[in-house]
Structures are given as structure tokens and as C-alpha cells.
Design a protein around this nucleic acid. Sequence first.
DNA 1: TTGTAAGCGTTATCAC
DNA 2: GTGATAACGCTTACAA
Lengths: 340, 340
Amino acid sequence: MVTIPARRKRATIHDVAVEAGVSRGTVSRVVNDEPYVSSSARIAIEAAIEKVGYVPNNAARSLVMQRSEAVGFIVHEPHSLFLDDPNIGGILLGANTVLSRADYQMVSLVIDSQRDTDRVARYLSGGFVDGVVIVSARHEDPITKVIGKLRLPAAFVGHPPDLQELPFVGIDNRASARAITERLMQTGRRRIGMVAAALDRDSGADRLAGFTDALGDRFDPALVTRVPLYTFNDGAMGMRELLQRDPLIDGVFAASDAVAAGALEALRDAGRSVPGDVGIVGFDDSSWALRTQPHLSTVHQPAFGLGAAAAECVLSQLRGEEQPTGGILLETPIVWRDSA
Amino acid sequence: MVTIPARRKRATIHDVAVEAGVSRGTVSRVVNDEPYVSSSARIAIEAAIEKVGYVPNNAARSLVMQRSEAVGFIVHEPHSLFLDDPNIGGILLGANTVLSRADYQMVSLVIDSQRDTDRVARYLSGGFVDGVVIVSARHEDPITKVIGKLRLPAAFVGHPPDLQELPFVGIDNRASARAITERLMQTGRRRIGMVAAALDRDSGADRLAGFTDALGDRFDPALVTRVPLYTFNDGAMGMRELLQRDPLIDGVFAASDAVAAGALEALRDAGRSVPGDVGIVGFDDSSWALRTQPHLSTVHQPAFGLGAAAAECVLSQLRGEEQPTGGILLETPIVWRDSA
DNA sequence: TTGTAAGCGTTATCAC
DNA sequence: GTGATAACGCTTACAA
């Protein structure tokens, strides 16, 4: 065992000022490199900073400046999904890239319990961040409430369930689902079903709606199975049920690539070939799409772009610019590979 | 277009005090629910807080308290890997769970560029966090330097390249690699090779070392291919080369599950059956392991436990407790499935 | 160009 | 029980 030495007291501007034989004001000017500092003073101060090991104290700075130069990135996903969801990483990187360029520190806060929710709400209230990007908000979310109450500059990725007046960026799940289903129909499939997932969310419900839009008269409710999550396992389960309901099914729209991958496994277990016996399409164009055999035809979801756009949106609010009403919808090209 | 109204000035303790007709000290006592407050005062103050919409200012609090009740979680991964790496999510969740329970806010900082590095270093220096958990530190990392200089309570996940005296939690990559290779040998394979990856890191180098340990006399350098990253694509590439070097190879240790998945694809493309023609084992027991066909035999890496242990380690430092010297190594059970 | 001093919103130490 | 008041470390007029 070894005792960690107590953290030694940190040097302050005062220490630097004394060391350099100037006033604190001048030191501050050097630190924030403002003009009107003689080069002799600057040199002395820089040496002093080095000598006493001064690092500015953000708390003090942000107290007086009334801002923190940080933007929160809130992820609110159930445990399991967070590990799986291929989009979150891209969104996060997109947001970070934009914020970084503007010299804002992105701090991600993950919410994984009720306790987390409360603590994060406090954290946001406390002025530790100047704005916030929110992924997958919940209905009646305390976080959303706090943001509204504080008028904290915010942008949602995906459609916020309530509070429609807050800015968001997203994709048109319904139109995209319709488009890929139509594309699937064009390949000549006769009995097309869907493994629908996450119907408690807008994205899940919209994808199903787009599917029924595309099918029109040909829509058969019996050919839709519903599973709770966008996961591999749920996909396999949903597909097995679909196969049971109609062994002759020859086309499937899976609500996400992970679901499609699971479905693919169920199909393989049932001895069906893809795309020979059945054509299948997914949604997301995540890393799943290239891991499956055959590679998935799917809807490209611009994860990075979503994160970047949300971050831009927060920054523009921070600059006090006017906001376009309503949300921003990004394009979702269809990428056609081998699974259908 | 609509103009977002300016954020209205936030209420302070002072406002609450005036409203409730008491002093700021008393309000502060109520806010931090300390004893010695008359219930009449408490009631009046709570009403006033509600009325003026008071939320405490963290910057001020953390300035006077000299701590922030937050712990940083630093991820330093190249872009592509961050999206793929299955362990990071688990580590993050493990750390968050522990910190949350102790009422610390975990803030994750992702480093994705030089600019990020500098900004994060400043952020850490600034007192916005009381401690830090670091995933995949770099050699000669400015972050590591800052931590050392500030004596910021820290714990590394995985072995920190330099600064060996800092606490870390990890696994014994070498022993684990040896164990699974031996297990693979016991299945009767004659020509066993390895797709080694990320040899510039300890984990990668150690896994190769464990492999050679296990093989002893039977080790044949020609049966090892080296690829830069723990990725699917690199795995496929490495396996193709292995196949070229020795078409009769019948056992493969892939440096990670993602690598194994890629190798599996290369094997399939080459018309080899698994585990019939060749047995293959991976490392990590990540979500990859169950996505492949057949499921992978692999080394279980306790991602959640690593995050949790690292967080515990930081908390214990924060409590001023003594630290065990050296790192903590967690168990890595072998999970045997169908790929070998 | 530099120094002085008044806050920023808390907590904490005293007296009362 | 409660109210002054002095920090905490910094920025920023305003004076010099």
C-alpha cells in the first residue's frame, strides 16, 4: 500500500502576479491573450505561470463569465441498446466534431437510471453547460422539462415526443420506409411482410406507417410482427413468427439493420435462402449492414450528419441567431446491396 | 423564423432570501438540507424557491467547495474504432453505474483530434472534474501528463503505456491468450495460426505473446499475420493472407471477436467450413461473438466490471483512502461455443 | 500599458 | 435558529 500525497494547493492568478511582480489584472490579460500588455510584462508573466504551475480555474471563470464553453450531449438509452445502437456513436462523433471546431467542450451525460435523470437535470440546471444536444428523449422527460424551464439552448436528435416547439434534426422515417418498401416491391416480391420494432417510439411507428403506405391495398396486417426493441434477438424472434404465419413469405422489411440481421439468422435456420427465396431490407445502414451475409440493402441514416446538425443548431442559438421553426430533416439515400 | 427569447436572468439565493424574508445563510441551509432550520422558515423558503424558480449555480458552489462532484470519463479512440469497439459501451456503463450510486456525475469526454486533446487537457485542469477514468491512453499523452501534474485522482482502464505508477484496472491479456490457445490445441488442431492485431498496443502485443507461449515448440512464425486494427476488415484481410501462406491451416486464434468475424468471412469465401475444416477462437466475448455463424468460442472480457472497478478506484482516491500499488486484474473466463 | 476594486453566487464561520 | 460577512479565483470597467 502507498498513500497518495494530498493534492497540493493549486496556484492562482494571485500567485502568478506576485511571482511576476505585476497585478492580477495584467496576468488575466496575458492568460486570455488580450492586447495592451507590454512584452516585458508578458514575458515575465509567462515565466511565472510556468514556474508556479498555474492553470486557470474554470469554475471561477465560468462564475464570472456566466458561461462554461461546454455543451452537453445527453444519451438516454436503455442499457442494452446503448451497447448495440450503431447510430449513437456516429451522432456523438458528428456533434463532437462541430463543437470542437467552435472550441466548445462536449460533455456526454448518459442516463441509465432514475437517479441519473435527476442528477443530470441538476447538472444542466447548474450552469455547467451552455447548451445541450439530446438523443432519444423520453416522453414527459424531466430533462426536457428542465431545458424548457431554463430556456437552455437545445437541439434534439430525433423527434421530441412532446414540446414540439423545440428545435430538432432528424430524418423522415415514414417517407424513407415507404421508399425502401417500394423498392423491394419492384423486385417482384409477392408476399411482403415486416418485422416492426420499437413501436412506442416515433421512429418505430413511422417506419411501420411508411411500410403500410407503400403497400396500399396489398397491405396484410397478418404479415407484420411487432417486437419491442431494435435488436438482433428481437429480429430473429419476429422473423420466426412471420415464417410461422406465412411460410411462403418472400419479402421482408426489417425495422432496422440489427433486426434484419436477426431475421437473416431465423431465415437461415429455417433453410430459406436470401435473396433467392426471400428478399430482405433493413434500415440504418449501420455496421451491421456489411457484417451480414449477404450484405443488406438498407436506408442510409446520416448519423454523423445528424449529430453535426444538432450541434450547429445549438451553436447558432448560443450566438443568439434566429432559429428556423420546426425541425431539420436530413436526406436518407437508399443503398442497395445483395439482400434483396 | 422565430426569435428565441433571451434567457432570463436566473434567480439567485439572494432573490430567494428577499422573497422569503430571511438571510442567504438560511436559504443555503435549506437548499443543502442541513439541520437547525425552523420549520416555518423552511416552508417559507421552499415556497420562495418555487416562486422565483431558483436553481443553485454549480459554478459558484464548486468555486467555494473546491470540488465539482463530477468525474471525467475519457475515451481516446480513432474515429472508426470508437464506432465499433464493443467494450467501450460496457466500460462506460460500468463506470457510470458506480459513480451514479455515489452521486457523482460522470461526464464523458471524447478525444478525436489534436484540438480535442488540448481542450480536454484544459477542461481537466480547470477543476470541472474531481477525478477521471481513462480508456485507452496513448503513449506520451498530454492528458496523462496533465493528470500527473495536477495529481488528479485517476484510474486507467487497460495498462497505461508510461507512468506505470498510476492505478489501473485491466485483464491479463497474455495469460488469457495462452489459455484459449491451449484450449484450441486440445481440440486436436495440428496447424494453428493467429491473426494478430494492434501490435502497437499492449493488449495486441500481449495476446500474441500468450499465443506463442501456448504453442511453445510448435510455434511457427509463418503462421502469424499482423494487421493494424481490431476490425472486421482487418480480420478478413489477415485470414486471407494466412490461408495463402498455408492452405492446410486448421486452427486460428483471432486477436479479437471482430477480427474473428472477419476471418470467418474470409474462410467462408475460401470454402472452408467452421468448425469442420478449421477451428477459430476470438477474444472479448463482445456482441460479435453471437452474431457470427457459428457463434464464437472466445475469452470473456468483463467490460462492465472494468469500468466499475476503475470508477471505484477513483472514488476511493477521492475519499482519501490508501491505494494498492500496481493494477487490478480482473478474471477472464473462457466461453466455449461452436466455432472451435 | 497597468493597477484597483467591484462583483459573479455560493458556503462557512462567527456572533447574536 | 438566524443573520452578517469573509472567502473562493476570476474578469472587467475605471482610474491612473
